[in-house]
Design a protein around this nucleic acid. Structure first.
Length: 412
RNA sequence: GUGGAUGUAGCUCAAUGGUAGAGCCCCGGUUUGUGGUACCGGUGGUUGUGGGUUCGAGUCCCAUCAUCCACCCCA
């Protein structure tokens, strides 16, 4: 269509068929999360830019080149949120909830990252996110994983696998990191160009490089799992024991690296092979240091985010609800009365469309296309007798009745 | 940000450099009170956009925009 407006690149419309799928997923999230006593929050889409610089990390791709950040008319530096966790922590602190005990939150809403679009990657996308604050022990890790698992199960998503890792903490990670960098530098010759950059910027990323040549070099690379401090090792072991107790299968993947700086200890991803290169459908982990980093007290926390559009690509076709009744008004003089009957039925809780009057054939075609279960035929004859004719659009059976009888006669 | 593929009717797609077509959808008719089948007819296009080459461009060239796929990154 030349000359018409187009949505911004990578920002798509949610049309009815797609939204039906989203609603289905959201509804399952709500019912699943409710069983874990998790409560919904609705947080701003606009946040101070600095919030993400401080939380996600200035060096990350998200902050350094993907944020929709701008200066507004009042000279404030604000941005469209690229993810949900930082805003949730900000709200948690702003509301003074640090002494209110464990907070279990979920949210659903749009996030924004200015990336190159591709399958499963949009510039505006929706996340269903969960954040638990003041959630210290491995029990929280296990339970939030169990909840994510239950959510995906309820969606009847098959061939998803859970990959699990521990990223260590500020005590054990630096030493490991130094050891890894040392290892990588020794092999720098054999590594690809991007891995050279990663060695300096984010060495753990080198581990999941897709170059076969790099992977070959990395076979005996040191893995964080083997270098956890005793607290982290114990924590991780307890998480694994808990998952086993709940019969939740997982693969240890020592090479999972969470992209955002604030993660520590437990990191996890639910992954599918059905989505091409963007196979992570739900991912998260522990971020014990973030609340403090943003000015609050030491507060252990854990969370995850699921990509709504990615989930929607995996969920089987969901159909739009169709009307119960389509009103066919025959003859100009019946129009007003027919609209009153339609309103009456809507008042009785039925979904009703009016076919707009005019030719009978045209209106029945509309009733058919709308997928209405019944047609309600109102002609001059019916109106004179204060009756309506109900036609079953599948069987073709018709029956005249008073409008008040109609709702009860549909119950089958 | 890098690379590759693709843009023709609402949709899916045709058209050796020589008058832009089909199927589906839509609208109408055969049936002025009966849909989903059938038959008949009809609407609908600056060929994504802007340049260039040519007597002539949907077709060749350049640029640009968008979509898709991959890298990168991530949900």
């Amino acid at each position: 269509m030349a000359g018409t407006f187009q949505s911004i690149r990578g920002i798509h419309d949610g049309l009815p068929a797609e939204v039906a799928r989203w609603r289905h997923i959201e509804q399952i999230a709500r019912t699943t999360f409710a069983r874990y006593a998790v409560h919904e929050v609705r947080l701003p889409v606009l946040e101070p830019t600095e919030l993400f610089v401080r939380s996600i990390g200035a060096a990350t791709d998200i902050v350094s080149k993907e944020m929709y950040a701008f200066v507004d008319q009042g000279n404030d530096h604000i941005c469209l949120r690229p993810e949900g966790t930082a805003g949730a922590v900000r709200a948690y602190l702003q509301a003074g909830l640090t002494r209110a005990g464990m907070q279990r939150w979920y949210y659903c809403g749009p996030m924004f990252r200015r990336e190159r679009p591709q399958k499963g990657r949009l510039r505006q996308f929706q996340q269903i996110g969960v954040e638990w604050f003041a959630a210290p022990g491995p029990v929280s890790d296990v339970e939030i994983l169990a909840m994510a698992h239950a959510f995906l199960q309820a969606l009847e998503l098959s061939d998803l696998r859970l990959e699990l890792n521990s990223l260590g903490c500020t005590r054990c990670r630096p030493a490991y990191r130094a050891q890894l960098v040392e290892f990588l530098r020794q092999r720098a010759e054999a590594l690809c160009r991007t891995c050279h950059e990663r060695t300096e910027k984010n060495p753990m990323r080198v581990l999941d490089c897709k170059e076969p040549g790099c992977q070959q070099q990395l076979q005996d690379a040191p893995e964080i799992i083997d270098h956890l401090c005793s607290d982290c090792a114990t924590h991780f072991q307890q998480v694994r024991t808990g998952l086993d107790a709940l019969d939740i299968a997982y693969h240890l993947n020592p090479r999972i690296v969470r992209g955002l700086d604030y993660y520590n200890r437990t990191a996890f991803e639910f992954v599918t092979d059905r989505l091409g290169a963007q196979g992570t459908v739900l991912a998260g982990g522990r971020y014990d240091g973030l609340v403090r980093e943003l000015g609050g007290p030491d507060t252990p926390a854990i969370g995850f985010a699921a990509g709504l559009e990615r989930l929607a690509m995996l969920v089987r076709e969901s159909s739009l609800p169709t009307p119960d009744v389509a009103v066919v008004a025959l003859g100009q003089e019946t129009l007003a009365w027919s609209m009153r009957q339609a309103e009456y039925l809507r008042g009785q809780g039925l979904a009703v469309v009016h076919c707009g009057g005019g030719g009978a054939k045209r209106q029945f075609k509309i009733a058919d296309r709308e997928g209405a279960r019944y047609a309600l035929i109102i002609g001059a004859d019916e109106m004179r007798q204060q009756l309506v004719t109900l036609r079953d659009m599948r069987s073709g059976e018709q029956r005249a009745m008073r409008i008040e009888e109609l709702p009860a006669s549909l119950t089958t």
